[in-house]
Amino acid sequence: MFKIIRYVYQKFATCSKIKQLKILEAGVDKEGDPFIKLENGRIFFGPESTSKERKFYKLFLSSGTRKKLPFQCFQIALDIVIRYMEGNLKWGGPAKEAFYNVKEGDVIAEMGAFRGYYTLYLADKVGTSGKIVAIEPIPSNLKYLEKNIAANKLENVIVVPKGVWNENDHKTFQRKSTDFQSGSIDISYNNSEALSIEVNTLDQILQDTNVDQVDFMLIQLNGAEYEALEGLSKFEPKHLAIAARYDKEERNIAQEIRLLLEARDYTTKTLNRKFVYAQLN
């Protein structure tokens, strides 16, 4: 019961922030994809809202907001608030920039980049002198990631259509059929679908994208965070923010990540026992 109450409250809190969005236009394009264009010129594409969201759309949005925001675009608006505006390591969790503020000229490795909403935020902050390596393995997410990058004419983003692991391989991803952000190598879901995804090490991915140094690395891999760091030995990101939310058997993955990074001469901090931040000494 508590989880349900918390979920509804978070929906309410997120919906209340939708009215802060300065929506210039919202609708469906010629390809059938919903979109929202903000007054700052940024445009966001995504899939249609699911029927389960309709009750929140009607209950928590005013008639004036609904007039500007068709229901098809409601999920995009939620994601803009959660990812583009707030940029947390988890819905309701700590901010990705809790200990490091992205600045102009930074090189950033972002995984998983999902549909590119936070990628747009990062691209604005690093400017034309910076670079974003956006890593995302799931094809349906890649479609919108690439479309959002193209629509916003971002020339400082490199998309890597792969998963991250400790070796070069193909892995089976499980994904909730009703939650397209929850793809994982190590976690099985009820009512899931299986996808065969090419995976590679961060060392190889960064080398292939001609990156020399990473200023900030964001790791959100639904259980593969430790393996991602095992495949990172040739590069030393200056700052990291890691969502280590899933333990394996009796292993405390956040603690193991801290020990691994501290052995590599990083200073680490943990928030809420599951979110690890690190800075190279």
Score class of each variant (00 low, 15 high):
G46M: 04
I43W: 05
S49Q: 03
L59F: 12
L21Q: 00
G32T: 01
L38C: 09
I36R: 05
R42N: 15
K37A: 10
I36M: 06
I23M: 09
C15S: 10
S62W: 00
I23P: 06
S16W: 02
N40K: 12
F60D: 01
S62D: 02
D29E: 04
K30R: 13
V28W: 05
K22L: 11
S63N: 09
P47T: 14
P34L: 06
R42D: 15
I18S: 01
G46N: 09
G32W: 03
I23K: 04
I36L: 09
K22Y: 08
S62L: 01
F35E: 06
F45C: 07
E39P: 04
T50E: 14
L61A: 02
G64N: 11
V28S: 07
D29F: 02
S51I: 14
I36K: 09
E31G: 06
Q20Y: 03
E39Y: 07
A26N: 11
R54H: 10
K30N: 14
K37F: 03
D33R: 04
E48F: 13
F35K: 07
V28Q: 04
F60C: 02
K19I: 00
I43A: 03
K55V: 15
E25G: 10
F56C: 02
S62M: 01
G41R: 10
Q20T: 03
P47V: 13
L38S: 07
S63C: 02
K19C: 00
L61D: 00
Y57A: 11
F35I: 04
R54A: 05
L38D: 07
R54D: 05
I18W: 00
E53M: 11
K22F: 07
K30A: 14
L21F: 00
C15K: 01
K37P: 04
S51R: 14
L38Q: 08
E25Y: 11
I23W: 09
G41F: 07
T50Q: 14
K22A: 12
G64C: 05
D29M: 02
A26W: 08
F44H: 03
K17Y: 08
K37C: 09
D33G: 01
Q20W: 01
